[in-house]
């Protein structure tokens, strides 16, 4: 009860130092201001505390409904969002690629219009096409949260990564961040590049040449490409290993042995980084491919913290978009109003 009260106060009152952001949708990090990112991270800290409580469920969003529209299979992100909704007291409705009418040839537009007609308070969307969340947001009144669109953005992943870095490093400003893997096809990498470069991080991209095209340098200031992983890890504060997609359409394959030989994150290679460097991975991991067991399970690994922080970030975001002051614009009754305790 007390925790819930505190959350209400802090969240609504907001941190005086951050600008209260106003955005209806979360489509990507690129379209957020630095103030909005800082605000979401500050808010996430409040919800981090709840993950440590024996009773984790609030009723802040009781009476609200959140649609989970997963047009592309996903386990981790879907469960994380569903759990975040549950812990805020919101009901969820789930659309999954296999079970939906997608296979019957219904268009994306018709599907999201149908979802909207069921009057959810937000739609969380995962889709294999870049720009799919933008497409939906442009045509719907309900807030849209991008849970990953093609090879474009995965904003909540970047926020949870930033929260993890913030925890371990105390700040996200001016760090050396090295991202290793298939950057070209990674929405995680794009969102992280947009976010971390905003805070002055120097970002080093490393991977096989065809996965690290030179155009990536134009995404933000302070980006460089380094071919050898040993060079790329030099002085790194944060090391991010990306999942290697074993099968990629229209793309000639690279033998796994080649990748392991040249780019696997091993304890020996990690020694090139700063001694206090942390290791992140968006999951799910291919152990023994992009990351060695000893690194994945080692003291520098924050991989499980990332998962926990994902809940905090998503709760903060839902609180803001569905239960926060922004949500009142729609005129929806504030059934979640008041300091409601967990049940």
């Amino acid at each position: 009860m007390q925790i819930a009260c505190k959350i209400r106060r802090q969240a609504i009152g907001a941190d005086q130092t951050t600008v209260a952001p106003s955005f209806r949708h979360l489509l990507g990090i690129e379209s957020l201001t630095t103030g909005q990112i800082s605000f979401l991270l500050e808010q996430s800290k409040i919800f981090q505390a709840i993950q440590r409580n024996p009773l984790k469920k609030l009723a802040t969003l009781r009476g609200k409904t959140v649609a989970l529209a997963f047009f592309e299979p996903s386990t981790r992100t879907r469960i994380s969002f569903a759990t975040a909704c549950a812990r805020l007291g919101a009901d969820t409705m789930l659309l999954q690629a296999d079970a939906s009418s997608l296979k019957k040839g219904e268009s994306l537009l018709d599907t999201v219009l149908t979802l909207e007609a069921m009057k959810p308070d937000a739609i969380i969307m995962r889709h294999a096409s870049s720009g799919a969340a933008d497409f939906a947001a442009a045509r719907l009144d309900v807030p849209v949260i991008n849970a990953g669109d093609g090879t474009h953005e995965h904003p909540t992943q970047a926020l949870l990564d930033a929260l993890t870095i913030l925890d371990r490093k105390g700040a996200i400003e001016n760090l050396n961040v090295t991202i290793v893997g298939d950057i070209a096809h990674s929405r995680v990498a794009r969102s992280n590049i947009h976010l971390l470069s905003r805070f002055g991080c120097r970002i080093t991209l490393c991977g096989p040449g065809m996965w690290v095209p030179r155009e990536l340098e134009s995404l933000a200031p302070g980006i460089r490409r380094v071919a050898r992983i040993e060079d790329a890890l030099q002085d790194a504060d944060v090391v991010m290993a990306l999942r290697v997609q074993q099968e990629r359409m229209n793309e000639p394959a690279l033998a796994a042995e080649e990748y392991i030989l040249l780019y696997q994150l091993t304890p020996e290679r990690l020694r090139m980084a700063r001694p206090d460097a942390i290791v992140l991975h968006p999951g799910p991991m291919n152990r023994g491919l992009e990351i060695d067991d000893a690194v994945a399970d080692g003291p520098q690994s924050c991989i499980l913290e990332q998962v926990t922080n994902g809940l905090a970030v998503r709760m903060a975001l839902l609180f803001h978009l569905v239960g926060g002051p922004n949500a009142t614009q729609s005129g929806a009754p504030q059934t979640g109003e008041g300091p409601n305790a967990a049940d």
Binding site: E30, S130, G131, T151, H152, R187, E215, L216, S218, M249
Partner: peptide, 18 residues
């Protein structure tokens, strides 16, 4: 061409479009 949908360049990389 390989299933591309716009010209390859900084813009396609930013948008995540092939």
């Amino acid at each position: 061409f390989a299933g591309g949908v716009m010209r390859e360049g900084p813009r396609s990389v930013r948008l995540g479009l092939r």
